[in-house]
Every structure is written in structure tokens, then in C-alpha cells.
């Protein structure tokens, strides 16, 4: 189903997908320079869900995420130079170098944090929603998760509490079929649909194709509207696929944990040309806009990497400064 989508929203989604992919490819291209010295999980191939979520969320909405969070951070409006500088371990990074690729934060735009333990931010997101509820503040919390999060106990615990309190939470599950190199077949019994599991927990659940950005937007928008209308927590599962290795800049189909044919089938479902073609055939995409957009994005990326490159490293004297305000005399 093609969602009746405002052309402005569709172009925003397309632009965000192009931008996210360009940023990720720039990271991949430069990774061998050894200046980005941290584990880095790229979102190439699965830009669709992130960009669609970005178009659904407002400025007052909050988001948390996990280890593969670049796309989520960027789609929520996170500062690009601060992200690249963070991956470079620089003082100008969004976490001043302490976090790296897996710890992104930009509270100014409501991106409240991504962390490196699978499922780790799920209850944090629910707690943020609790704070909105207690303070009677508007907005919702988007909790980005992957398929593996439905194997962690903390998801069940947190989802249950969100349902009990009818908290304003939107779970967005990007199902890319793999947890590192382990396929869903070894992690879930045959025939189990993740959305049905979520539904049984009291989350109103739906699922769709994350690589069809307009369909994804439709599901997400409906779910977000239900949250805003007080219906309680919602769960949207979006099928998608990571093109490159679990962690790092390379392709890894040679390892044999998945087939080249599977990869090629998903690559044929690339969300970016798909939406580009749809908009072009509908006459809402101006070729000049596309060229200008790509040029703007490339310039922005060059500038972000230059910023990261010339930024200073954090001061060694402050290495332990941010542990705790309670530490009067640090342990020797």
C-alpha cells in the first residue's frame, strides 16, 4: 500500500535516507585511515525505518537507541559534526569522546542516548515516558530496538510496565534478521511473529516493510497518533536488512553465515531508489532538487569530517572527571 503522503514529508524522508547513507559510506570509506578507533555499526541498507521515524517524530518527542544508532541520531536531528567527532574520540564529540559510535546523545533535539548493551535503553525509554506522564508533558518516547531485543528479559519487563501505565511509548523494531552472525532461526522458534509477541504483552502491534518508506511511515504515523491520543504503548516491526558486516566498514557475505543471494535480494529492495522512482513517476521529484540535495549533503559531510579531524582530543587531565559528583577523593 502506498500511503497518501504529503510530498514534503516524502521528500524529507528521501533526503534523510540519502544523507544517512552518504554519512555511513563516508565512514566506511575512511575507516581504514584508523582515525575512527572504535567499534562502528553502520546502517547502510536499513535507512528506511529511521528516516520514516524522523518524519513522524516532533521536536518535543524523545528517542533512545542501541548500538546501531547513527541513522536514528541523524533522523532525530542529531548534530552531525558532533557525531563524527565522537567517533574520532575528540573533545568536540557529542559525548566528549567517552562514548564513541555506540554512545550518541543530543538532548537538544530529544535524542536522549544510545548505548551498547542490547536492550539496555528499553527501560530507560519507558522511564522517560513515565517522566512525561508524571509531569503531564506532551510528547512520546520512541524506543529503537532490533529483533534481538525481543530475546532479552528486560524488554518483557519494560513493555509490561509501559502497558500497565499506558505510557506514551512507540517501540520501533528494525528486524534485520541477524544478531551479529546468528539468524532468527536459531533465536526464535519457527513461525513466531515478533509483532504477535509484542501484542501479547499489551502493546498494540503492527508490522510492515521497512524498505518501503511510505508504507513504514504510514504504520508509524498511525501508531504515533494512537500514542498521542492516549492509547498507550505501540509496537511497529519493520523488516529491513543490513548490507555490510555487523560491525565495521566491510561486506561479509564471504563468511557464509548468510548467502550472497539473500543479500542481493535485499539490495534489490533498496529503499532509496525505490522512493526516488516513486516520486519521480508521480512528478513530485525535481531532478535539480536531487542534485542540489546530494551536493549539499556531500559538502556537509566533508565539513563534518574536517571538523572532527582538526578538533582537539580531550584533555588527559580530565580523563576521570566525569565519574561521579560524589567522589570527593577518588580511589587511588
Amino acid at each position: 500500500m502506498v500511503h497518501p503522503l504529503d510530498p514534503g514529508v516524502a521528500l524529507r524522508i528521501l533526503r534523510d535516507m540519502i544523507r544517512i547513507r552518504a554519512v555511513e559510506e563516508a565512514i566506511a570509506d575512511r575507516y581504514a585511515e584508523q582515525k575512527m578507533r572504535c567499534p562502528t555499526h553502520l546502517s547502510i541498507g536499513q535507512e528506511g525505518p529511521a528516516a520514516a521515524v524522523g518524519a513522524v517524530l516532533g521536536r518535543q518527542d524523545l528517542a533512545v537507541s542501541g548500538h546501531r544508532a547513527h541513522a536514528h541520531y541523524l533522523a532525530k536531528g542529531g548534530d552531525l559534526p558532533a557525531m563524527i567527532a565522537e567517533i574520532y574520540g575528540k573533545a568536540t564529540g557529542c559525548s566528549r569522546g567517552n562514548g564513541g559510535s555506540m554512545h550518541l546523545v543530543d538532548e537538544a533535539v530529544g535524542f536522549m542516548g544510545s548505548t551498547a548493551i542490547v536492550g539496555g535503553t528499553v527501560p530507560v525509554g519507558v522511564g522517560l515516558a513515565l517522566s512525561l506522564s508524571v509531569a503531564r508533558r506532551p510528547g512520546l518516547v520512541c524506543i529503537f530496538i532490533g529483533d534481538a531485543v525481543l530475546e532479552t528479559g528486560v524488554f518483557y519487563e519494560a513493555a509490561g510496565f509501559a502497558a500497565v501505565r499506558k505510557l506514551p511509548v512507540l517501540f520501533v523494531c528494525e528486524n534485520n534478521l541477524y544478531s551479529v552472525y546468528s539468524s532468527l532461526e536459531v533465536r526464535q522458534p519457527a513461525g513466531r511473529a515478533l509483532a504477535e509477541v509484542a501484542g501479547a504483552l499489551g502493546l498494540q502491534a503492527s508490522s510492515g516493510d521497512g524498505n518501503d518508506p511510505r508504507a513504514a511511515y504510514g504504520l508509524l504515523k498511525s501508531a504515533a497518533d494512537r500514542v498521542r491520543n492516549g492509547a498507550g504503548p505501540q509496537f511497529v516491526e519493520l523488516a529491513t536488512y543490513r548490507w555490510r558486516e555487523h560491525c565495521g566498514p566491510l561486506f561479509d557475505n564471504d563468511l557464509g553465515y548468510r548467502t550472497e543471494a539473500e543479500y542481493l535480494a535485499w539490495k534489490a529492495r533498496d529503499p532509496i531508489p525505490r522512493l526516488t522512482e516513486e516520486l519521480r513517476s508521480e512528478g513530485t521529484l525535481d531532478p535539480a532538487w536531487l542534485a542540489t540535495t546530494q551536493a549539499e549533503i556531500q559538502a556537509e559531510i566533508e565539513s563534518a569530517f574536517a571538523f572532527a579531524d582538526v578538533s582537539p582530543f580531550p584533555d588527559q587531565a580530565l580523563a576521570y572527571a566525569d565519574v561521579s559528583s560524589w567522589e570527593i577523593t577518588p580511589f587511588p
Binding site: M112, P123, V124, V126, L130, A135, V141, Y156, G160, F161
Partner: peptide
């Protein structure tokens, strides 16, 4: 609360980040 110690600790963390 639910008998869900790990999540309810994370809920406290999120609530604290939300100003509580």
C-alpha cells in the same frame, strides 16, 4: 511495580533523565 527489577531500575534511570 511489576516484579521486574532490571527494567524498573532502567525506568528509574529514564525518569531521572526526564527530570524526576
Amino acid at each position: 511495580m511489576p516484579t521486574a527489577e532490571n527494567a524498573m531500575t532502567g525506568v528509574g534511570i529514564g525518569a531521572a533523565l526526564g527530570g524526576l
